[in-house]
């Protein structure tokens, strides 16, 4: 079940004054024969011991791996799905021993909670929501938000888990008159939630009252932006977006992420920074993750690129290895590691 591997990853030089450093510390191979779709890291408690575990998702199985000594991993639980394939893992911060998954084909059809029976330790799953689900995100304080339905019956719903993962409360947020495609928490403001919409608006809610506070239109240069991170500073809202539909431009290079600043009072906003690929590298944003001031993206070229959002440039670039494109990348929520996966089930863990 586990493979140990320690080697230094080859890193092509980037146009950086302070190059990032990626060290391959571990590799694990998902045993399932189906296509690998996602990875995450979370705390799991067994016999009174909380451990930083890895969760891997294939189309029809989600596995939990516990750490052994010297960066080896042991598969301890696997949840199986027979009808609808897994699309993504949805970690819920502040909840131990429970992880959510989104299932569907092209769009999300179900959200399920995965956990283990306290009685016999067997794998259990619970259907939390089914229907035409557009977006889902785990939030701090054991909350899960999702948007579902079509224009006339669009709903934005928050579920709150009890400390042990059970008993969930439900609350609805006032829906905007358009579909919400992505969500992001506002760092340091636990009652604020952002969403991006199909019409290129950013909406902001008060999670305590459910009020829709503002709808803010952003630059039409990029359609269907994905919101990854937001923080409020000096009365302004800073938002990190990616643009999966952006066209490559010769003058700007390839903008993969963008930092914009919004005045929530006036809704006026302006682009602050474009995070482009190093010269000579091509590709658009396919999939990515932002944590603190680090942004990682899988590109259409099959490579992974990492940006320091404060420095403003690409600090590490990981070409496809070996002859396999990268297909997903996540920052570990339990430490400062980068989890990178390939469709064939290989997951690589890098220290950054």
């Amino acid at each position: 079940h586990s493979i140990e591997q320690t080697e230094i990853a080859d890193l092509p030089a980037c146009d950086s004054l302070n190059p990032g450093y990626l060290q391959l510390v571990s590799k694990l191979k998902n045993p399932s024969g189906s296509c690998s779709v996602d990875v995450s890291a979370m705390w799991w408690e067994r016999a009174g011991l909380k451990e930083p575990c890895i969760i891997t998702a294939c189309e029809y199985a989600v596995s939990l791996w516990k750490p052994l000594d010297t960066w080896q991993w042991k598969n301890i639980y696997t949840w199986h799905f027979t009808e609808v394939p897994v699309l993504q893992i949805v970690p819920v911060p502040d909840v131990c021993n429970l992880v959510c998954v989104a299932l569907g084909n092209l769009e999300i059809r179900e959200i399920r909670a995965l956990f283990c029976s306290p009685d016999d330790g067997s794998e259990k799953q619970l259907l939390l929501k089914s229907g035409n689900i557009k977006a889902v995100l785990g939030l701090t304080k054991r909350r899960l938000v999702n948007s579902s339905g079509t224009l006339c019956d669009h709903q934005v719903e928050i579920m709150t888990f009890a400390e042990d993962g059970g008993n969930k409360e439900k609350q609805f947020l006032m829906p905007p008159e358009e579909t919400v495609l992505t969500f992001a928490e506002v760092q340091g403001m636990q009652e604020a939630l952002l969403g991006t919409t199909v019409m290129n608006n950013i909406v902001i809610w008060n999670l305590k009252t459910g009020q829709l506070l503002k709808k803010m239109h952003i630059d039409d240069s990029y359609q269907a932006s994905v919101c990854h991170k937001a923080y409020s500073e000096m009365g302004l809202l800073f938002v990190v977006l990616s643009h999966p539909c952006a066209k490559e431009s010769e003058s700007l290079g390839s903008p993969v992420f963008q930092l914009i600043v919004i005045n929530p009072k006036t809704t006026l906003n302006v682009g602050v920074m474009l995070y482009c690929l190093p010269q000579g590298q091509a590709g658009r944003f396919l999939e990515g993750d932002v944590k603190d001031h680090c942004a990682a993206a899988v590109l259409t070229s099959g490579a992974i690129a990492i940006w320091d959002l404060l420095l403003g440039h690409c600090t590490a670039f990981l070409p496809p290895v070996p002859d396999q494109n990268w297909s997903f990348v996540k920052w570990s929520g339990t430490d400062s590691h980068l989890l990178a996966g390939q469709k064939d089930g290989n997951i690589f863990i890098y220290r950054y």
Partner: peptide
């Protein structure tokens, strides 16, 4: 970018918008 392009700024924007928005 120029802060002036963004209009009047309030440090307390979240509470102010919450008191202005429909319940």
């Amino acid at each position: 970018c120029n802060k002036a392009d963004l209009g009047p700024i309030s440090l307390n924007w979240f509470d102010e918008l919450s008191s202005e928005a429909p319940p």
